[in-house]
Amino acid sequence: MKIDFILRIKIIITVLAIFITAVFEYAAYDLTKTAMSNLYWGNTGSDVAKVQARLKDWGYYTGAVDGFFGVRTWLAVRKFQAYNGLRVTGIVDDDTKVALGFTTTAQDLAAYQASSSVTTNDDVYLLAMLINGEARGEPYIGKVAVGAVVMNRVRDPRFPKTIAGVIFQPGAFSAVDDGQMWLPPTNDSIRAARDAIAGWDPTGGALYYYNAARVTSYWIFNRPIITQIGSHIFAR
C-alpha cells in the first residue's frame, strides 16, 4: 500500500518534469519559426494549400488539399514544372509562382511602393493597447483621458516626440512593464484611442496620472493636480 503510494508520486513527478521541460523547449522552438517565401518539401500552411488547390484544379495533383508539402505535392510540382518548361526542381520558386498565377515576392513589394504607406492606424492600435492595459476598468472618458496624456507628452519638450517613444519609455507605464498592454484591446479602447489622437482631451493638458490607491513613487504628489476622472488623478 505504502509502496504503491510512493510509486504513484514518483510517476507523477517524472511526468511533470518531462512535461515542463517539453513545454519550455517547445516555447523556445516556436519563437524561432519564421515566414518563408519559397515553398518546398516539408512546408506547411495556407500558402501550400493554395498551391495544392491550384495544381488540383489544373489536374496535376490528386491528393487532398491539406496544406502539407509532401511527396505527392512534390511530384505534382515537378510534373507542373516539366509540362510548363520550367526548371524541374520540385520547389515553388518565383518562376513557378508566376506560372501558377500567384504574385512573386518582388511583385508584392512593388504593390506596396505604388501607394503611400503613411497611415495612422498603427498609432491608433498601439495607443488602444496601452489604454486597454492601463484603464480597462475606467469609464470611457477615463480611457480617452489616458490616451490624451500620451498625446500631451508627445507635444511636451520633456518627453519623447512620438507615440511609440512615449509608450515605451522605460518605466513610464506599468501596463508595459507587467505585460498587460499586450492583451487584445476592446472596441471601447480603440474608440478612445481614435478620439485622443483626434484631439479630444478631457484632462485639459495633463502629463501624468496616478491611481491614488496604488502609488509607487511619492514624487508624483509634487505635481499640480488638474482633475480626477474615475479612479485616476491627472496632474501636470
Binding site: T203, G204, G205, P224, I226, T227, Q228, I229
Partner: peptide, 13 residues
C-alpha cells in the same frame, strides 16, 4: 461635480 479642471482653461467639471 466630478472634479474642477485646472488645465489651461479653469473650468467646473
Amino acid at each position: 461635480k466630478y472634479s474642477p479642471n485646472n488645465g489651461k482653461i479653469k473650468a467646473y467639471g
